[in-house]
């Protein structure tokens, strides 16, 4: 998604060197994708091996000075999640952004995710409702492909902040496919304003917190 496939992770004195997305080195990345020989290789691992790698990613990568570390997790409340929270606990993580789609089937799982955060003592920064409505490019009619409002209701129900809705936007999926920066490429699109507003709210709560 960030146009960094095929790059390699190098080793230096202070650990693994992450992959940089841009020349200015403003975004550094680490993913198991960089450690695979072929992109189609399956990582058929049970929990303990995954946990060990997560610990290494947190402890042995030479991240340098960072303002934000964003951890993207798989769905669920299992090995990866427990290990990540455990590994980051000494660093006092700011909290979790919980992403859902509007339909009840998805909200149902996210309710469990919020319980997970509560049990693990991880603060919830807020809920984001993704894939929220699609504006037909032909007639500008907005269709709620995956229904509407589930994220907001969930946030109210759980008493956590609601950060916003991101509409379905083919331009967004396309940018991700091509590894382009959506925020720079399509500042006029409908998803742009919602994503920047959500990012701003997260920044705000970070400054409040520190």
């Amino acid at each position: 998604m960030l146009n960094a496939h095929g790059k390699d992770v190098h080793q230096c004195d202070s650990g693994w060197v992450p992959v940089y997305v841009d020349q200015e080195k403003s975004i550094s990345l680490m993913s198991i994708g960089f450690l695979l020989e072929r992109p189609d290789d399956a990582v058929v691992w049970r929990g303990p091996k995954k946990n060990a790698l997560i610990k290494q990613f947190v402890g042995d990568v030479s991240w340098g000075d960072l303002d934000f570390l964003i951890v993207d997790t798989p769905p669920g409340t299992s090995d990866e999640h427990i290990s990540t929270v455990d590994a980051l606990r000494p660093f006092n993580p700011m909290g979790a952004v919980v992403v859902t789609t509007p339909q009840a089937v998805s909200v149902g799982d996210v309710r469990r995710e919020l319980t997970f955060c509560k049990k693990m003592g991880l603060p919830v920064v807020g809920v984001v409702e993704n894939m929220s409505g699609f504006v037909c490019p032909h007639c500008t009619e907005c269709t709620n492909v995956f229904s509407k409002g589930g994220g907001e209701e969930l946030a109210r129900h759980a008493g956590v902040p609601f950060l916003g809705c991101v509409p379905l936007d083919p331009l967004l999926t396309q940018s991700l496919e091509q590894g382009k920066n959506f925020i720079q490429e399509f500042p006029k699109s409908s998803a742009y304003s919602s994503i920047t507003s959500i990012a701003q709210q997260i920044l705000d709560s970070a400054t409040q917190g520190s």
């Binding site: 699609f134 037909c136 490019p137 032909h138 007639c139 009619e141 269709t143 492909v145 379905l168 083919p170 999926t173 396309q174 496919e177 091509q178």
Partner: peptide
């Protein structure tokens, strides 16, 4: 995705490859 109003098809998740 077929728009229920104008019946035109859009690719919300484009098959780029």
């Amino acid at each position: 995705f077929i728009c229920p109003k104008c019946k035109n098809e859009s690719q919300i998740f484009p098959p780029t490859t």
